[in-house]
Design a protein around this nucleic acid. Structure first.
Lengths: 111, 111
DNA sequence: CCCATGTTGCCTGCAAGCTGCTACAATCCT
DNA sequence: AGGATTGTAGCAGCTTGCAGGCAACATGGG
């Protein structure tokens, strides 16, 4: 499965940016970006949510996709979980196949 | 809706502990516990996950319930979301009633 | 050769989560 | 009544994790 850093690199390349070009656009140093792309952050950490937000913006990518790749739960989803804890506790107990079937019913209806 | 601090107070009372008794059992100072129970932490912060863990342990409470009250997403649930992002992105878009109905099908089937 | 690019190790700054007083008010106990 | 226990609150300070910076270095293209 694709890692967060790999995806960022793809997106950056697609835009034709070098590390030194992209870095100022998202407000960090180029060497930090390098570590992000190589998943070499100290202590196995991940990029901050605010950096991911800026990356998604500049690289015109799907912010939630990036957050999830970086193992962050997007706020929109977290908020739903806090609102309806029991529902999500139940859902989280289902196995992968059941969940897929359940969601597929609705993804068809997605406008 | 009940707040985190209120719930902790309930649980502590039920066990007959005073703040000064409970504090050392969970490894914090009693004045800090007081602030936790009154939701008066500096800058609207929340108790750390590790403290919540110890509280659940000592007070024999449901750790996930406490985490959710403190607006943390339990790791078990976060992990499921990371595993199946698209499913949960879909589910998070449904409205409250739909979600309730959906989950109620399964909660009956609970072990 | 130059220069742009990317990599890496070490350093820093800051905020979160707490400590640990202090003082005070309310309630309970006998 | 008075002492003990309890909870509330303010405040200064510490510690640790972590986002990010910096400098030096490696590599590759024209």
């Amino acid at each position: 499965m694709e890692k967060f850093g790999d995806r960022i690199r793809e997106l950056r390349m697609a835009k034709g940016y070098s590390l030194r070009q992209l870095a100022p656009l998202v407000g960090v140093g180029f060497s930090y970006l390098s570590k992000v792309e190589n998943n070499k952050l100290d202590f196995e950490g991940t990029a901050s949510e605010s950096l991911i937000h800026r990356l998604a913006d500049v690289l015109e990518a799907d912010e939630e996709e990036l957050l999830l790749l970086a193992h962050h739960v997007p706020k929109r989803i977290a908020d739903r979980i806090i609102e309806q804890p029991s529902v999500f506790r139940t859902l989280a107990s289902l196995d992968a196949n059941e969940l897929e079937r359940m969601a597929s019913q609705y993804s068809k209806a997605a406008k």
